[in-house]
């Protein structure tokens, strides 16, 4: 199964989608997520969500540029009909479900696709998107993702240090660890190029 990964870089920042992993269950997905997206010390928490539980809207670019903001068009689902999968996590009947809402708010280069905004109560994923549009009107949003909150598996707060702190000790993984030798080398390079540019052709090539 494919799981979407949401990584939180610092306690005051939202969980942001960084990619996906394949795993047979959420527990393995979290472990893979740490190995793939947490090798450097910039994670404090991770969430994983089965792709089939995510309902996503997308908007044609011309609609956005003509109207300057998003409008509720035919939503595209990552899995066309989440209900059709027989998921027990998807709302049925009249009891509302809590949905987690993620959104994309920039058309420029960004290190995340969608980031967590909060939760809404709704009966269906489609209704959850409509509710999200009312609850989170700004900034302008280009893509909405919603999933039942219960579909999210999270790293536990008390276990987080043992998950993410070891990356801090592996200083040899940081480019700055090799800084001095490289700086010296760069100085030599600049000196050589200046010399070669100013006088004759090189005697050694």
């Amino acid at each position: 199964m494919r799981y979407e990964i949401f990584k939180q870089d610092a306690p005051n920042q939202p969980h942001s989608n960084v990619g996906s992993v394949h795993a047979p269950d959420a527990e393995m997905a979290l472990m893979h997520a740490r190995d793939v997206y947490g090798r450097r010390p910039n994670a404090v928490s991770m969430w994983v969500v089965p792709e089939s539980e995510i309902y996503a809207t997308s908007h044609e670019p011309e609609a956005m540029s003509h109207e300057g903001r998003t409008k509720n068009q035919e939503p595209r689902t990552k899995s066309q009909e989440p209900e059709a999968h027989g998921s027990k996590l998807t709302a049925h009947g009249s009891s509302p479900t809590s949905y987690a809402v993620f959104r994309k708010t920039s058309q420029r280069r960004s290190m995340t696709y969608v980031a967590y905004a909060g939760t809404v109560e709704a009966n269906t994923p489609k209704d959850a998107v409509t509710a999200a549009m009312h609850k989170f009107p700004s900034p302008a949003t280009f893509v909405w993702w919603v999933c039942p909150e219960a579909a999210i598996s999270k790293t536990e707060a008390e276990a987080a240090p043992s998950w993410f702190e070891p990356a801090k000790d592996k200083v040899y993984r940081q480019q700055a660890y090799y800084g001095d030798a490289t700086r010296k080398n760069r100085r030599q390079r600049t000196k050589l190029v200046n010399k070669l540019s100013s006088d004759e052709t090189p005697d050694e090539a």
Partner: peptide, 27 residues
């Protein structure tokens, strides 16, 4: 393409360590 661009930004930052450890060794 956003997803490719994001992958490249992450990869470049990490590859810089690869390049520097190799250079250190050869120097």
């Amino acid at each position: 393409y956003g997803p490719y661009s994001r992958a490249m930004v992450r990869i470049c930052a990490e590859e810089t360590f690869h390049q520097r450890q190799g250079k250190e060794m050869i120097v």
